[in-house]
Simulated scan of single mutants.
Amino acid sequence: MRLLSPAIAALVALALIVTPAAAQRQPGDYPPGRDSQVQPGVAPGELLGPFEFHAAAFPGTVRRYWVYVPNGYDPASPPNLLVFQDGQRATHPDGSLRVPVVLDNLIAAGAIPPTLGLFVTPGNLSRRYPDNLGMENPDHRWQEYDELDDDYSRLLLDELLPEVRRQWAFTDDPARRAIGGTSSGAIAAFTVAFRHPEAFGNVISFVGSYVAIAAQEAGPAAAPLPAGDLYPRLIRHTPPRPLKVFLQDGSADLDNEHGNWFLANQQMLAAMEYANRAADEAGLPGPRYQVAHEWGDGAHSDAHGSAILPDVLRWLWGTP
């Protein structure tokens, strides 16, 4: 072992004494890693858009979408597919997630296969998508993302994916397709895969809103609509789906009239583990959930999810 000289050792000791406490990690600090930053020598894919899209599933709304085409894209070898909600944040070069940059780096390193990205905003109640929204949420978000019906799935599967496929090829294999998002975008992703495991076999869920946001009342005497807090019960009472699910949340996430986000995400994990265990104990054939998670100390933010996104994609699709 190499020993420090007395002079250098004294300087190191002094530095440790005077280092301010503020330099230590604070709860919720999750800086982006190397794979989330533009790297020299990595040929980027092409991010095309935004394109406007009017969906029959939600009349009177308009949304935007972007398509990420990986470097070296070959339509004769259809790439994997990643669909991510809240596309205005997922694609922003100065945002937390920077999904296209992550895809550039992982694909170039051979860590995941070539992947086509589709990034979609929620709908807005207007004829044209407002240019001044930036990374803010459009005004029809919870109605599309937080309700448990099949409308948003139908938008993606019957309308938007066929539209994208007119120009770009991608795989039909659900094991090579992933859908993800943060907050309400995460529950939207889970709903699509839970209802349609034949279409998506992988889910990325960051700070997922598995709470009662959609329990809006139609009137004073009306019963609340089904909402995300029902998912743990649904999962426990139905056979496991062939899904690979990654859950992330933080202990300082929201706690309000809709529910407690951190507890809700832990309930989701427990429900999938129970469903697997119950199926095993009953000797039932069929698939099991593959579920992984990472709990942190962050609040309702994209930061932790963005920091671990490269490793989540490796877990989903990593090549040996």
Rank of each mutant, 00 (worst) to 15 (best):
I308T: 12
T115P: 00
G208C: 07
I204W: 10
S5W: 09
R177F: 08
Q290L: 07
L82W: 01
A90F: 04
G305W: 01
S153M: 11
L313W: 02
R63G: 06
A111Y: 09
A264F: 04
S5D: 13
S183E: 07
L313E: 01
N71L: 11
L161K: 14
F53Y: 14
G72P: 03
G45Q: 01
A223V: 07
S5L: 08
P75S: 14
P226Q: 05
V42K: 07
L97A: 14
E273K: 06
V67D: 00
S306F: 06
H304A: 11
L133Y: 08
V245K: 01
V99H: 09
F206W: 05
G228E: 07
P320N: 09
E273C: 14
G318W: 12
L157C: 03
A9Q: 09
V203D: 00
N137C: 06
P79C: 00
H300R: 15
R165L: 07
H54F: 13
S153K: 10
H54D: 11
T91L: 03
Q216V: 14
S306L: 15
P50R: 05
P44I: 14
S5H: 10
G185P: 01
L118Y: 01
V120H: 00
E217S: 04
P44F: 04
L316E: 02
G219V: 04
A271F: 10
N80M: 10
S251N: 09
G95N: 10
R128T: 00
G259V: 11
D158G: 11
L230S: 05
Q266D: 11
A108D: 10
M1A: 08
H258P: 13
R34G: 08
G305A: 12
L230R: 08
A43H: 12
A222Y: 03
S36F: 06
A13H: 11
G60T: 05
L11D: 02
N265T: 12
Y65V: 01
P27N: 05
D249N: 15
Q39N: 08
Q88V: 02
A223I: 03
D94N: 09
Q143L: 12
V83P: 00
R277D: 13
H258N: 11
G250L: 01
A199E: 06
R165C: 02
G117A: 02
F170R: 00
I187R: 00
L234D: 03
V69S: 01
G72Q: 11
A55W: 04
A299G: 13
A193L: 12
E136Q: 14
